[in-house]
Structure formats: structure tokens, C-alpha cells
């Protein structure tokens, strides 16, 4: 698994680097010219507009697919708490909002990703999820901490704080 994770990070890093170059251009020249300069740039701009990383109002987002997970979790510059949950799981419905609250208190120092394990089974299987809710903390693509089951608000606060430091 480790090697696969590393591979993914490497692969997507190169994609990101490729995408970044035009952004630098766009900041030094006019926005519209960079938009028209190449389809790749256009794609990136559209994507980054759709997926604002640093100016989000909501503290959490739903992971859309494997690629989205790589983009916004594995390659995130901020640490990310990943909440693996399921529709059929009662405790998940209690934990989710509590976790969002704890994340909000960290004022943008940590993000939260939500993964529905039935929609994204491969991700959950890959990250060793056996029961839900499972919350893993990721920084720089590495799993740095995790817990399974429900926790009270104080415990979640200290968990989020620890991860954001």
C-alpha cells in the first residue's frame, strides 16, 4: 500500500507541477490571456474555481472520486481529517457534525474530507477501514493518526488541534 500511495503522490505531483506553471504566468500577465493560451490552462482554471481550497466557507467537502481524493487529500498542503462514513451507520450521523464543529475551531488550519464508503469502496478498502465511522488524519500524504467509533466534542477538539499543529 505504501508504495502505491507514494506512486500516486509522485504521479499527481507531476500533474500539479505542470498545472502550476501557467498559474504563475497568469499572475504576471493578464488573466484572460492565460485563459486563452492553452486548453490545459483553461482546464486548470475551471477546476480550481470549482474546487477552491483556501477560501472555502464550508469546513468539509465530499470526496468525489479517487482523483479528487488524491488532489484534495493526499496532495493537500494543509492536514486533512478524512471521515469515512456510511448512510446506514447511525453513529456516523452523530460524529460527522461534531467533527465539522471541531474542524471549524481550527480556523482553516485543517480541512475535512468526507468519504462515503459505499460510493468509494476502493478508497475505504485501501485505507484499511474495517468499521465506520473511521477518521484518519493525513498530512503530506501520510496517515499521521486515526480513530474508529464515536468521540465526544472535547476529544475531537484535541484530536483536530493535534493534527493542525
Amino acid at each position: 500500500m505504501a508504495s502505491r500511495l507514494l506512486m500516486r503522490r509522485v504521479c499527481s505531483l507531476s500533474v500539479r507541477d505542470f498545472c502550476r506553471r501557467p498559474v504563475t504566468v497568469s499572475s504576471s500577465s493578464s488573466y484572460s490571456s492565460s485563459l486563452t493560451s492553452s486548453p490545459a490552462v483553461q482546464a486548470f482554471v475551471t477546476r480550481s474555481l470549482l474546487r477552491p481550497l483556501f477560501h472555502t466557507r464550508s469546513v468539509s467537502f465530499n470526496v468525489q472520486d479517487q482523483e479528487d481524493f488524491t488532489d484534495r487529500v493526499v496532495n493537500s498542503e494543509l492536514p486533512v481529517l478524512v471521515d469515512f462514513h456510511a448512510q446506514w451507520c447511525g453513529p456516523c450521523k452523530i460524529l460527522g457534525p461534531r467533527l465539522e464543529k471541531a474542524i471549524a475551531k481550527q480556523k482553516g488550519r485543517v480541512n475535512m474530507a468526507k468519504v462515503d464508503i459505499d460510493e468509494h469502496t476502493d478508497l475505504a478498502i485501501e485505507y484499511g477501514v474495517s468499521a465506520v465511522p473511521t477518521v484518519i488524519a493525513m498530512r503530506g500524504g501520510d496517515v499521521i493518526d486515526q480513530f474508529v467509533g464515536i468521540k465526544d466534542e472535547d476529544q475531537l477538539d484535541s484530536f483536530a488541534k493535534r493534527v493542525s499543529e
Partner: peptide
Amino acid sequence: VNNYIGSLNWGYRVSLRD
């Protein structure tokens, strides 16, 4: 009933992985 079934589905998936 279907929530319980959902948890069983997941349990089977996990046991295949394990």
C-alpha cells in the same frame, strides 16, 4: 432493515480484503 444489510455488505467486503 436496509441499514443493517448495508453494514453486512460492508462486513463481507472487509473480510474479503482481510
